[in-house]
Design a protein around this nucleic acid. Structure first.
Lengths: 251, 251
DNA sequence: TCTCCCTATTTACTCCGACATATTACGGGC
DNA sequence: GCCCGTAATATGTCGGAGTAAATAGGGAGA
């Protein structure tokens, strides 16, 4: 994707390079910038983002764009603004940490090890339970989807993007089989964040071992309808992933 | 933690016919209106919210207000808009169902029984695990907070608002003791939604039984550091709540 | 003189409407 | 059937009027 050049060449005096990083829209880019700055701790809870006009001028954007960015952050619980008191950063426990965007912002730059630990812990709670439910409720179609994903995983290894996509498909199929919407969206969010971490795991070193047999174990248990076995096998899987990520992060 | 409640109510004494029902700001009210309409199924995924200007005119608000409302909905994954193609409602699996606002919108009007079930199921997975972790990691202060909440619960019964607040405090203290941020925010979201349901449980009928002994069991197990017992006791608690809500919803 | 309350000012967000721009879907021309 | 021009529509920008709220100042009572 090419980041197209600046739109307004009428005014060349802005030496500041264009803010639009990963966001496609202008306010999206601003929200991304401010969001990462808040998540990284540059702005602490209770801090004040002084001045709509001042900030808009500093970023060389119009007040409207800045305002819409603030709306996005407000919607995610990161900030709140009141007529006279300016825009304050909310305390951490009001943040919407499971929001995919917030999760993404939390993982740009330095990933807070403590938070990563809590995420994996949550995953270790949820995913085995999901596997247990899936074993009880899966139908033939679910199994077929899982099997296909498994085949894809075997064909492309986990070092390729296609292989990781197949891994995601496998887990998604399990979630689908739980017939639980809340579980699905939660695991999807966590999974996306975890995938973010696996990216620099893969960047730092090749995958140490082949996780395929463990995946097959999960599938077999689900196919057999054995909830406890499925939960146990999935537990092994997430512990494995945790080990890998932990060793990758300790460098 | 003294949850200072920011003024959520606006005096509607002015007889202006504007849309702001439960809303704080104008765009907040619009987001609320559109959000509930999407959640209730009035707008199906794939539907198009035709025309920025047309919509703004129909609602008797300016384009800015409508635009900012759309930003909020976009931030929560409910809609996405592209030039020329209008603003489309996203498929359900892109929705941010754990967002507190979205959760609230889902419970205005008719609560989808299937979704409520999935929420309680998730709660039945997460809360016992949280109790287990709390039993392993709690310190003296955590126990003191739980004990105080328990005392408050005994003083005011669960039929009063103060009593329900004490119940929330008790659960929050447990979450706090897990030392897991992700777990905390997740359970907080779910708890808020569940509390919404308990409101019409309480509205439809008085609470059938006194849940205090079960709460004490959870506390004792956590105080003793027995993770398994804590998980089991908490499991009893959520099953009880599920039964109550189920019977209340079947009327 | 000190304290408290009430009022006024200032400040910053909120909302508005119009203008300019860019991107995309649609349809006509080859 | 493919390509390209046009029209439609969302996006970004701007400045101003309106409004709510925090702070400062003044007046009254002790």
């Amino acid at each position: 994707m090419k980041t197209d050049s600046i739109s307004t060449e009428t005014d060349d005096k802005k030496a500041t390079k264009d803010v639009r990083g990963p966001g496609r829209r202008l306010h999206g880019a601003i929200a991304h910038k401010l969001g990462t700055e808040i998540l990284s701790g540059k702005y602490q809870p209770g801090d004040i983002l002084s001045g709509e006009v001042a900030f808009a001028e500093e970023l060389k954007v119009s007040r409207s764009a800045y305002r819409e960015a603030i709306q996005v952050l407000t919607a995610k619980g990161l900030v709140a603004s009141r007529p006279k008191a300016g825009t304050r950063v909310m305390p951490r426990d009001r943040w919407n940490l499971l929001d995919p965007d917030v999760l993404g912002w939390a993982f740009t730059g330095d990933p807070d090890v403590e938070f990563v630990r809590s995420l994996f812990e949550l995953r270790a709670i949820v995913e085995p339970a999901a596997a247990r439910l899936a074993a009880q409720r899966r139908d033939r179609d679910d199994l077929k989807t899982m099997k296909a994903a498994l085949a894809d995983m075997r064909r492309h290894t986990l070092t390729t993007e296609a292989g990781r996509a197949a891994d995601r498909d496998f887990h998604n199929a399990i979630l689908q089989a739980t017939r639980n919407d809340a579980l699905m969206v939660l695991s999807a969010s966590i999974g996306a964040a975890v995938n973010w971490t696996t990216q620099f795991k893969q960047r730092s070193r090749a995958l140490p071992r082949n996780p395929m047999p463990d995946h097959v174990l999960v599938y077999d248990a689900i196919a057999a309808g054995d909830g406890e076995a499925a939960a146990a096998a999935m537990n092994v899987l997430v512990e494995l992933a945790l080990d890998d990520t932990r060793s990758a992060m300790e460098e």
